[in-house]
């Protein structure tokens, strides 16, 4: 996510390459998608057969490497993304929204819809779901599991990059911003793994809890609110709110 944002900055910002924003975005997405795909092909496929937790540890380690790489290339100072419409705003009655915020809302809703349709309606999307639920069976059904997995990672890279760009447009970022990804985990878990609308709702909950809590409690306690909710959900409804989880018959 962080890396995607930085690549876009690199492409667009006048201090760097100064490419047109609307051109830079697809390029950045492409780069990140390719990166995700390559990552899976080169690294993750060798982990075939190892427990899930090993992959988690591996990706965490990759996060460290990316942070280091970003710092080495672009420095550790916070930078912000030059957004073409910065400054203008939209008025809806009494509500004033900065154009960046509108962009965030629109893109998020659009993305959720597109991904939802993709996973549920297209062959590729359903293939991805199948591969995630039972690899062996997917193989038997003729699904090229390895290629699909790489595509999944590519897709993940693209979506993360989009998130990164949106995030960067709202404020400054530095290489450590990637740690925000933890909240992404929380959002996915709360919504329930395997459910896209769930992830969206989870994200909204996480995002809203903090400012709301700040309103009622002191800022310090407010910071822990999202994580407390995460723990609560894990304890009471580990599958998340909209999960695909069922009990296995032994």
């Amino acid at each position: 996510m962080m890396f995607g944002a930085f690549i876009t900055i690199w492409l667009t910002n006048s201090d760097y390459l100064g490419v047109n924003f609307w051109l830079a975005v697809p390029i950045a997405l492409l780069i990140m998608g390719a990166l995700g795909y390559l990552l899976d092909m080169v690294v993750l496929q060798r982990m075939f057969g190892q427990p899930q937790i090993a992959v988690v540890i591996l990706t965490i380690a990759l996060g460290f490497i990316l942070r280091f790489a970003a710092g080495a290339i672009w420095g550790h100072e916070p930078q912000s993304l030059e957004f073409p419409f910065a400054g203008s705003a939209i008025r809806l009655g009494d509500l004033v929204l900065g154009i960046e915020e509108v962009a965030v809302i629109v893109v998020t809703l659009l993305l959720t819809l597109v991904l939802y349709l993709f996973f549920n309606q297209t062959k590729l999307g359903m293939g991805m779901q199948a591969a995630s639920q039972n690899q062996l069976a997917a193989y038997y059904m003729g699904i090229p599991v390895k290629r699909i997995q790489s595509l999944v990672w590519g897709l993940g890279g693209v979506v993360a990059a989009i998130a990164g760009i949106l995030f960067a447009s709202k404020g400054a970022i530095d290489p450590s911003s990637g740690l925000l990804g933890i909240k992404a985990f929380a959002a996915a878990v709360i919504g329930g793994m395997g459910s896209l609308p769930g992830a969206l709702i989870g994200g909204i909950i996480i995002g809203m809890v903090e400012p709301f809590a700040q309103y009622f409690l002191d800022p310090q306690s407010a910071r822990i609110a999202p994580y407390m909710i995460l723990l609560l959900v894990l304890i009471l409804r580990p599958a998340g709110l909209f999960a695909q989880m069922q009990k296995k018959k032994v």
Binding site: I57, L58, A61, F64, R67, F68, G71, A72, H76
Partner: peptide
């Protein structure tokens, strides 16, 4: 001086181990 290099190298070591010597 490259800040963050320790985590970076550490992460590389880990990944090499997970891949080649779990």
């Amino acid at each position: 001086t490259i800040p963050g290099i320790e985590s970076g190298v550490f992460a590389v070591i880990l990944i090499s181990f997970i891949l080649f010597e779990p």
